[in-house]
Design a protein around this nucleic acid. Sequence first.
RNA 1: GCGCCCAUAGCUUAAUUGGAUAGAGCAUUUGACUACGAAUCAAAAGGUUAGAGGUUCAAGUCCUCUUGGGCGCGCCA
Length: 553
Amino acid sequence: MIRQQVLTSLVGMFVKYLHSKGVRDSFNFVLEIPPKNINADFAINAAMLIAKKLKTDPKIIAKEFAEIILKEASNIIEKVEIAGNGFINLYVKNEVVYKSLKKILVEKNRYGSMPKKNNKKKVLMEFVSANPTGPLHIGHGRGAAIGDSLARILKYLGYNVTKEYYLNDAGNQMLVLAESTKIRYKQVTDEGIDFPVNYYQGEYIIDIAKRLFSEDRDINKIDFKYEAVRDILKTIKDDLKNFAIEFDNWFSESEVAIVKDENGKTKIDKVCESLLHENEAYMKDGALWLSSTKFGDTKDRVLRKSNGEYTYLASDIAYHKNKFERGFTKLINLWGADHHGYVARIKACVRMLGFDGEALHIILYQLVSLTRNGQSVTMSTRSGEFITLKEVVNEVGKDACRFFFLLRDPNSPLEFDLELAKKCSNENPVFYVQYVNARCNSIIREGKNRKDIISDIEAINFSLLNTKEERNLIKKLSAFCDTLAISEKTMSPHHFTTYLIELADIYHKFYEKCRVLTDDSNLTSARLKLIEGVMIIVKNGLNLLGVSTLDKM
RNA sequence: GCGCCCAUAGCUUAAUUGGAUAGAGCAUUUGACUACGAAUCAAAAGGUUAGAGGUUCAAGUCCUCUUGGGCGCGCCA
């Protein structure tokens, strides 16, 4: 918040300064936090940025602009320094810092949110979307954590977000699933029957078969696909629920592949016809091909096979068209990085259909590499050798698991060592962060025994919070807004884990240095308010990650 | 062979998207509990950001090449 305030006031001054020099081009200087060896609150690179344009030594520009800042922003800027290389270092007035703490205390769990700014942006966040052929594995867990957290962040920023799961329940793999279940069913009575290697090997298929067998039903009347999907979907939903993830909508592939309109046509039929009509697709060798090369794909792709069946791509196109038709202006897809080859072609489709290619934002997350007892575990739904999300959540807990998944940039591979994860109670950074909240609570509890505490914010003398540790802490609390901004810009929630760890670090330093409960009522009251602010921000931050706060640990 | 992604301290990684002396945690060494929780703090040590060029006032970040790794290249989903 402090940063935005300073930035806003400087931008106008900078434009005016440029105009006075006869420059009309726009330059975006960066307002940043200087390295630790420099005491200033912020630094700007404005002078170096325009030195070339003005053909003037950056130090001279810095000096001129610094004088303007000092004159025109005296309400927020206390002091200005010019570094040798042309950076302008800014010292913010204490009142501005205290004011930002008051804002946190007043706005609480709305601090930094912008309910009105983005509410016209209708976002469809599609994630997980695992095939209903088996339980969710740990890789899906990473996608789930990232997608859900990003949705929370965008909602907090005012976006109108819908979380959707695309249910792939109409393709060939459904036939394999049905057959797999049927054979397992037969095996219940006749162990001599072989189970094909390319069928779904997982134990859960046997469980479904046993369930059906126990219901004593006629094998000829059982819809194996329906029964298998029903059971698997239930476990997927349960697993997501235990992971604190709820979808707003479950979109079935059948809606585009099976449901027909009054003319007997599916959505896939119609989108393929229109692509053909628009010359974005053509017939060759009895198959319908999409001219995706025109839009950057490495080769053209088949939409309808020569046997008349549609490919997965065809239903995906119809699905994405449908997303736009439902009024969403921004589509975010979260895919495992093994699907990266698919990005060019789906983006090509979006443009062919006449929609804005930029409106579709695909986030690829690198796969989770899993080790157990030092040995890497391969994850394959078909072989049945995978670690389920449920198993990991049960072992390490929902909070640690989510925090762990969100610790790194989606584009970085994530190493998840199961043995380490089990031990993580004393190593996982989530505890470091949650400990902040526990310590705060402990102080608040003690503080309640005091009769001399001022609770009215207006009556608090914030200027008593004058140590370096306190000032740093408040500044960091205020940087919550910066973290929101960078998360929005990069479409990644991982900045919040980093932010919270850094905040925890600063808090623990403050805790060592500044005793909250003292003989001085005014100081104690002010510090209790600071503690309150810390709790608000930690809670808000953890909330955005889907991690709980604990009063006691 | 072609395409996408990655390479930062012994290990796992961050870096406000091009800024100042590259930050953390774990592990190692040393110190701090007779006041709010030591699941903490203070300090030491650890780096040619894979390598070589280039662009820039400024490069871990952008461009080119090399090396090493992950993944994808079907009328499968």
